[in-house]
Amino acid sequence: MAAIIEVQDLKRHYPMGHTVVRALDGVSFAVQPGEFVGLLGTSGSGKSTLLNLIAGLDTPTSGRLKIFDQNLDQMSREQLSLHRRKNVGIIFQSFNLIATMTALENITLALMFAGMPRVEREQHAANLLRAVGLSDRAAHRPSELSGGEQQRVSIARAMANSPAILLADEPTGNLDSKTAKEILDILETLNRQEGKTIVMVTHDAVLATRYAHRIIQLSDGQIVANGTSHEPAGGTA
């Protein structure tokens, strides 16, 4: 099967003062459709930079980055925004919900950019909220929701345009362990039942090994380990 994500000698360097920060320095790997990949590494290892590149939020300094056989490194800003809209759904550590919008509106916003008509998108967003167990929270603003609830809204939003790939950047970083487990269970369900390809950035090796099929470990912008996790995904839970 052709890889859904293909990375070859990918580099991302930032100029900082007189020096150059090599956030990513020649990374190569591939992700197959339906895989749950954990990107493990310490702070500053380049894992978030890699995720941002796959998301199309950033552009590489050099190297090759292919999603669905399309070269992201050669895309225009407009094409990248289309890629973010259609191919990937992003889940952030800090949820990044728009504070002035209700849970439902946060989800419909993503559908608005896709040009879905009003009635249809409200219906669709309500279904997504139900899927993450938040039907009764539709009219609440983020400030009225708990961290776990906010992250579930965020997952529903990431799923809005039915992307094949979900990109999660420390999705449980701001949550207690019980809530973290709930969120990861949702991701696992999406991976198993809907076949979503998931790339999750984390610094928590235990969580990564428990849920991910494969772990790619980064250090100083380079891959130091790339292999199947020791424990079966989902663990004993």
């Binding site: 925004s81 809209r85 916003l109 950019f113």
Partner: peptide, 9 residues
């Protein structure tokens, strides 16, 4: 956020 969820320039 808008850009991340698919909003274009």
């Amino acid at each position: 956020v808008m850009k991340a969820i698919g909003g274009s320039d």
